[in-house]
Simulated scan of single mutants.
Amino acid sequence: MDLELTEEQRELASTVGRMMKQHYDAEKRDAILASEQRYSDEMWGRYAELGALALPFAEEHGGAGMGFAEVGVVLEEFGKALALEPYISTVLLGGGLVNEAGTDAQKEELLGGVAEGSTKLAFAAQEPGARYDLSAPQTKASGSGEQYTLSGEKTGVLGGDSADKLIVSASVDGEVGLFVVDANGQGVTLMPLKQADGFGAANVLLDNAPAQRLGSGDASATIQKVIDIATAGLCAEAVGAMDSALKMTSEYLHTRVQFGQPIGVNQALQHRAADMYVSLELARSMALFARLAAASYGENSHRDINAAKIEIDKCAQHISQESIQMHGGIGMTMEYPIGHFAKRLTVLMRTFSDTDTRVEELAAAGGLIAPNAEV
């Protein structure tokens, strides 16, 4: 099995990396973060022009006809720059659900808009008191055919503050259904939120909001698949953020002078930096494991992605905490970039689930490798 990036994927990584270095340095990101909408329409347009928003969708629906491997390449570069735009919520979550469950007409309408940058999507699934459990939504759908209305409450909707359309999970006829709702439509109340890492989200109240059913039948398996693939995307983004955090810390150790010499000559700090590098390489390997599981999604993909995310979360905690420690007091200030990387990594560790919950689920499933497996 060839685990290296293809020439096309390397070129994509190089192109996206150059774009982010040119247009998304720390100063420009701070300006975006301080703006009212907390993401850049200009950068969103650049992503669309580059084709990054179209990557996983079929060409007949306005996409690029590629796959998750290319999406992972883009997300790693976004992680290096801490890009604030709602890429995962639109392309992997909302777009992924439409791609998996939608009719041809729905795919053509919605995915074409995503690909060209004119439509932002968000997946409204989490509800008060349910924590990470998406299997039994209390939001209710009433109606049939083309006419449905939704009533209920959704919390912490990633990208919900910027979405044009919401993909909402709701209980209907004893099943879990998916519905398309106009985010600015009748019966929809959006309450924008700012996450600890600066990324946008929203709480959503639905009061007989008009909705269109996305596809048909029970959507539980589709939701699980899309969440898993989005989790693999988080893994790629986390590796990018950890890579930047380690490089920033290494540069600081070489430039911060104390008692007439760089603090990096201290052997204890060298050892700690080396341990951070080991964590980064472990995370990179686990992100590759998750990428392969997402790219060829099958029976064991949920388990494999879950296991990869557990290890990546541990690495993210190690690198983010060590980065702050070795920067000293300056690492705790909002003006210095390293703290923003630590915040993003901390939020990524708790997106869709947390480490303890994932470990419990993996243990209940018998672990990644069966105890009686032959080695």
Rank of each mutant, 00 (worst) to 15 (best):
L158R: 12
P56W: 07
L55Y: 10
L205A: 15
S244K: 13
L282H: 15
F78Y: 13
R350N: 14
I227A: 12
F57D: 04
Q270H: 06
K165D: 00
G79V: 02
E361I: 11
M349Y: 00
K21A: 14
V176I: 12
S301Y: 09
L55S: 04
A122N: 08
V278G: 06
K120I: 05
A238N: 05
V359D: 10
I338Y: 01
V71H: 08
L97Q: 08
R303N: 12
I319E: 01
K28S: 13
K120P: 02
A283E: 07
A274I: 07
M19P: 04
M242Y: 09
A124F: 09
D356Q: 13
N99M: 06
G217S: 06
D41W: 08
R46D: 09
G17F: 04
K225H: 08
V188E: 04
H61A: 03
G67Q: 06
A101G: 00
L92P: 04
G329I: 10
A125D: 05
L93R: 11
G240F: 04
A81G: 03
S144E: 14
L269G: 00
E70H: 11
G72Q: 09
L190M: 11
Y132M: 02
G198F: 08
L246H: 10
V265G: 00
S220K: 15
D104M: 05
Q224N: 13
Q325L: 13
S118K: 10
T139K: 00
M334L: 12
G233I: 08
L362V: 11
F352N: 11
E251A: 12
G366T: 10
S285D: 15
L92S: 13
V172M: 01
V168T: 06
V347D: 00
V188N: 05
G185L: 03
L282W: 10
